[in-house]
Amino acid sequence: MDVFRATVVMTFRWILRDRVLHAILAVALLMILLVPALSTFSMRQVQELSITLSLSAISFVLLMVTVLLGASSVWRDIERRYLASVLTLPISRTVFLLGRFCGIACFIALCGVVLGAAAAVIISVSSAQYPSDIPIHWDKIGLALLADIAKYIMLASVGIFFSTVSTSFYFPFFASIGIYLAGSGSQEVYEYVSGQFGKEMGSVSVALFKAVYYLIPNFAAFDLKVPAIYGVPVLPAGLGLTFSYAVLYCAILLCVSSYTFSRRQFP
């Protein structure tokens, strides 16, 4: 347990002392500070726009952070020859990988919470200036943020998986972005293919689409921005399923990553 904790702490320090991330977080805060100014461009819906922009900004920043961290999690250690000194300590590669993942996941969560707090201040300020007829649903905004965090933790596990099979930075980086885009759209494509359009397509391609749909993470489930902005209700049962899905998906990917990483040669 000490070994695991030390790995998490080390990963956390790595992230906190990374200058690229400092730059990203500075940009993030700037983006959130710009929200009130941008929100006033909408004369009718200042509050809604400020929530939209805040959540989008946070989501974008978390995406950047996740993809960078996930893709560089193993790559950097290989590139800088850290692995020869770390994996030769009495730590199993699985524990090392889990420590890495948990460190990154904690950081994504921390990032989301900090930016969320900043956004909360900004949303209160801009909605106080031009009150809307829809009340602010803080609980749903929090839920949307939580779902976003879960989504990006899933994406981090995808990035880690790719980086355990690759020696380059670019492959896991772009593969994560690709999975992110595919995962965000897969639900719509699935419904499209299941409907009238699918009947014209031929059963093989439909089956292929459906297989991909089950294989890649379904990020559409984690998009709770509309409920957060307009207060549309969310089903608790669905939320339970969504979060269980996230946990299981991460666990499976980490399990597979542990297998590939343990078999890897570091000559």
Binding site: M10, R13, W14, R17, D18, R80, R81, Y82, A84, S85, V86, T88, L89, P90
Partner: peptide, 16 residues
């Protein structure tokens, strides 16, 4: 590796 001390060739350690 519990009872082993290892010095890699041209070592590099977490420089942060």
């Amino acid at each position: 590796r519990m009872k082993v001390g290892y010095l890699p060739e041209n070592p590099a350690f977490y420089d942060f």
